[in-house]
Amino acid sequence: MGLRLGELVERLGGQLIGDPNIEVIGIAPLTDAGASHISFLSNSKFRTQAGQSQAAALIVSANDDPVVAQTYQGARIVVKNPYVHFARTAQYFESLTAVVPAPGIHASAVVDPSAQVDATAHIGPRVVVEAGAVIGPGAVIEAGCFIGRNAQVGEGTHFFANVTFQHGCVIGKRGVLHSGAVIGTDGFGFANEGGVYIKIPQVGRVVIGDDVDIGANTTVDRGALANTIIEDGVKLDNQIQIGHNCHIGAHTAMAGCVGVAGSAKIGKYCTFGGAAMVLGHLTIADHVHVSSGSMVSRSILEPGQYTGFYPLAKNSEWEKSAAIVRNLSAMREKIRTLEKTIKTITNQAEES
């Protein structure tokens, strides 16, 4: 289905330079785009590629546009943030061809009579909805999902196939849970008695806000006594582990294989690169950005970028090395002072 550039700009904004009647059928990368595609430039390093692109139109920033315009022959949509505009454009194209599941409950689904399923919700094949669960308007629960007793799924939230959403858990509006996600498993809580582990019942819940996206095979443990909290707008990639009683602040994003141990409290607008680790019971401030593979072993109380890589060693050796590293700055200043003192004494000796 073709889309006029003029219509796209009317809907999503931006300044169109070129023919508003040009039609595009989809989005493609700079190097692959053809005469029926729109593409985008979000990194100035690729200005040359943009200038040579065969796309019918480009989404560019005001800073990049004058340079790109010197060689690029197509139409241009000038916006403040090309990457965000690209995302909204992609969403719109997807909406034009999206297949919306029909409301209703599939004949093979098992829904407890006491569950409340809104008439506009979609319940797919072999879904199980237990007693007291509430499924909101427009929710989509795909094949093979499990919704535990007294769980709540908000309006417009989408569970892809084979999501497990355990008893008492709550998710707000417009959430997305990808296949294999497990929400509300028991936290890793045990007391040790003479080398024998005694299980601690996990009686809290997982409470998830609005507009949260949780990736495939990601797990979020329920709280031991209080709840595990995932605030609005959080984005979790695939294969992430969130321990019991964690609190993840609004609009924080975590890349694949991040692990967060129990009772960690993470602020708002944070980012975590792939395979970053956070130890339990730590506090991380708002606007903290942790590099991939880093180990957060202490609380971070100031915003900023943090990176920590260190070779594996016996714990006693690692502690000694870490103590030395922490004192390197002070040691350097002492060495500089000693060098100045030695130089002064040497000069005085030579003069005498």
Rank of each mutant, 00 (worst) to 15 (best):
G2V: 05
L3W: 15
L5H: 11
E10C: 04
R11G: 00
G13T: 13
D19E: 13
E23I: 06
A28P: 01
A28W: 03
I38D: 11
N43E: 12
A50H: 09
S61R: 04
A62K: 14
N63Y: 00
A69W: 02
G74M: 01
R76T: 02
V78Q: 01
V79H: 03
K80F: 00
N81A: 02
N81V: 07
Y83G: 00
R88G: 01
T89I: 13
F93P: 11
E94N: 10
L96K: 15
V100P: 05
P113E: 14
S114R: 10
D118M: 11
A121K: 03
G124S: 07
R126V: 04
V129F: 05
E130I: 03
A133R: 08
V134N: 10
I135H: 05
P137K: 13
A143F: 08
V153E: 05
V153W: 05
A161I: 11
N162S: 14
N162V: 06
V163A: 07
H178S: 03
S179T: 15
G180V: 09
G184V: 05
T185R: 14
A191L: 06
N192Y: 09
E193F: 07
G194L: 06
V196G: 02
P201C: 12
G204A: 10
R205W: 10
I208Y: 04
I208W: 03
G209E: 09
D211H: 04
D211I: 07
G215C: 11
T218M: 07
T218N: 12
V220H: 03
V220E: 08
T228W: 07
E231K: 05
V234Y: 05
L236K: 01
L236E: 09
I242P: 04
G249T: 09
T252A: 05
A255K: 08
G262H: 09
A264P: 13
I266L: 14
G267L: 10
T271I: 02
G274F: 13
V278Q: 10
L279S: 06
G280W: 06
D286C: 01
H289N: 03
G293Y: 07
S297Q: 09
S299A: 05
L301D: 13
Q305L: 12
Y306A: 00
T307M: 08
G308T: 15
F309M: 14
Y310H: 14
L312D: 12
A313K: 14
N315Y: 07
S316M: 02
K320C: 03
V325I: 15
N327V: 00
R332A: 01
K334D: 14
Q348I: 05
E351M: 07
